[in-house]
Amino acid sequence: MPELAQNRPAAGLRADPRVLARERRRERALAFGVYAFLIIVSLPLVAGYGWLVLNSFSTELVHGVWPEGFTLRHWRFLWEPPSDYYPDLWRTTWNTLWLAIGMTVTMVAVATPTAYALSRMKFRGRSLFLALTLILHAFPGITLLIATYYVLRTLGLLNSIPGVFLVKAALMLPLGVWVMKGFYDAISWDVEMSALVDGASRIQTWYKVMLPQVMPGVASISIFSFIYGWSEYIYVITFIQDKNAWTLSSYINSIVGDYRFLDYGLLSATALFYIAPVLLFFFFTQKYLMRVTIGGTKGGS
């Protein structure tokens, strides 16, 4: 079969083991380079967390890096307060959770219907409203600190968790509304009209047809709100002095600012205690967050 033999070199070029091996080596070198770069860049972050872990379980860090002697002494705060100055840890943790959940519920409850209206309804001032929310989002929240303090004092919401999450949610809502609006925008009008013709009222259409389709959006703003609420610092220490209403960030803040001396072991242990739930939460929910980039219309009709 002379014709076939003639064709062979061209086809063989691709399957040549030496060429393949060279190709594979080059790919491997490239991957190695990429990984090396990423590892070096993320090293300081890992080192930070590593330091926290080592510090919280060892009696001493020689030269601040080498751990010596395993101890659980720093974790005693879990069952007894470090001093009379500190409130009960579990009460503080509960406050932190309450703040995170309150923040999440407020965000979802307000952003979901607001975004629907902005996406689907025509009304006077709609575009102005959209522009204003963006401006509000661009506004640094810290500049409002004193004004909001007065507002909360007038409303009797100082030293209360709802006071904090209302302010925090108000400043985060523009983002939530815009994210949700994106999800609603991706649903075709036909689907909504179809539900109306099928006999649904406007409200039924919203919660039976629209809402299930924007659930990835609801998930993502919930996750963001929860994490922001859990880790809120500046509003908590500004608006809450009452120790009964402290959150974990005020707790850690007071360890850092302790008048006697700075206990690094205790600081590390409480910090880990503070981070762990968020890390776990993020670990279990991140797959919902990933959908945000894909958009809200998987397999739409």
């Binding site: 009209m193 998987k298 009709s301």
Partner: peptide, 28 residues
């Protein structure tokens, strides 16, 4: 309103409800 008219409408895009099964779509 649309719900009171007894009208069936088939859209060009079909406008099925993506989160429901075929049965639930028809049963809606």
């Amino acid at each position: 309103p649309p719900k009171g008219r007894g009208v069936g409408l088939v859209f060009q895009s079909y406008a099925l409800y993506p989160h429901m099964t075929v049965f639930d779509n028809i049963a809606f």
